[in-house]
């Protein structure tokens, strides 16, 4: 199918060599064939913004993992430490690299825990969305007809109202905590994934290889799991990467409004919410969480754009 197309883009000068005269040699592959994923990786590597995105994302992950350990072992500052006397310390003052907040807690350590929470929310919520969206979209697209119309109408109805409204409603009822945030954001952001998968499945199911699979007696579930979903993996992966920043965005907005992660846990949104109260005199309290959220979302967006270019050659211009 796309194999030939894909190979063309990876061709370099080295691939051009005079062929042997011997006719039996003509059909022999001179270079090892490049798989779809190898080729995608090759294209991704050439995308500077995409690599910057990967770098930012990896930095945030490492920061979330390593920073608290280093702060604990080397500087003996932990998450639960607070020195009220040093409240509102400016960056660099009293040994706080990024300053201290209104309760005398180290901003750097809280930022690192915020990174853990924001990234966990982003990834978990997009996994929940992936699960619901892929199952829903595959069923809707594969069965088609009335089932499809009904299922897509349901998506349209849910999608007519911004997910923030559902999130607010659900968060007021559910117990506060990380699990609720995962669930609620995931449960409200699967719609675009479902639409995408449905579209892919609709076109894929008409292909010959699906017909071949049906004729050779593969069961419906087998066709969905072995043939339809793997072939839609490229767009699904792109959509997942794009879903992570929106989940982080939503979580930070929620925490900012006081609906997300509850105190004393720190998320970038709740830190910014505390920071804005002290904006006039202690801007460092909001500066760092704001910078980290923006960088992370920017990084994921770059990565998502680059992945789309790398995985979907048809979309390239």
């Amino acid at each position: 199918m796309d194999e030939q197309n894909v190979n063309k883009t990876a061709v370099t000068e080295l691939s051009f060599k005079p062929l042997h005269k011997d006719p039996s040699e003509i059909n022999k592959l001179i270079r090892p064939s490049v798989s779809f994923w190898q080729d995608a990786w090759y294209r991704l590597r050439k995308n500077k913004l995409g690599m910057l995105g990967i770098f930012i994302v990896l930095f945030m992950i490492l920061f979330g993992i390593i920073a608290p350990i280093v702060m604990d072992r080397v500087f003996h500052v932990t998450y639960s430490d607070q020195t009220l006397a040093y409240a509102y310390s400016k960056p660099g003052q009293n040994g706080y690299l990024f300053g201290a907040d209104n309760l005398g807690r180290d901003v750097l350590v809280r930022l690192a825990y915020g990174a853990r929470i924001s990234l966990a929310v982003g990834i978990a919520a997009s996994l929940v969305a992936l699960g619901i969206g892929v199952v829903y979209g595959t069923i809707s697209g594969y069965y088609g007809g009335r089932v499809d119309t009904l299922m897509m109408r349901v998506v349209d109805i849910i999608d007519s109202v911004p997910s923030m409204l559902y999130v607010i409603l659900l968060m007021t009822v559910l117990p506060r905590g990380l699990t609720s945030v995962f669930f609620v954001i995931g449960a409200t952001s699967w719609l675009s994934m479902a639409r995408l998968v449905r579209g892919e499945v609709l076109s894929l199911k008409e292909r010959e290889f699906i017909l071949a699979a049906k004729i050779s007696g593969v069961k419906t579930w087998g066709i969905m799991l072995r043939h339809l979903i793997p072939n839609a993996m490229g767009p699904i992966l792109v959509s997942m990467t794009m879903g992570i920043p929106s989940a982080i965005f939503l979580e930070s907005n929620l925490s900012f409004l006081g609906l997300g992660i509850s105190a004393p846990m720190a998320s970038w949104g709740s830190m910014a919410s505390e920071g804005i109260e002290a904006l006039r005199n202690y801007p460092h309290m909001i500066f760092f969480p704001a910078l980290f959220i923006s960088l992370t979302i920017l990084g994921f967006n770059f990565l998502g754009d680059a992945l789309r270019d790398a995985l979907d050659p048809r979309m390239r211009k």
């Binding site: 920043p245 930070s252 920071g275 904006l279 704001a290 959220i293 979302i297 920017l298 967006n301």
Partner: peptide, 18 residues
């Protein structure tokens, strides 16, 4: 456009305010 789409509203608002 990239910046405005990636920066959350509260970040932009507090920056303007500051």
């Amino acid at each position: 456009t990239t910046l405005f789409i990636s920066i959350p509203g509260f970040v932009f608002a507090s920056l303007l305010m500051y």
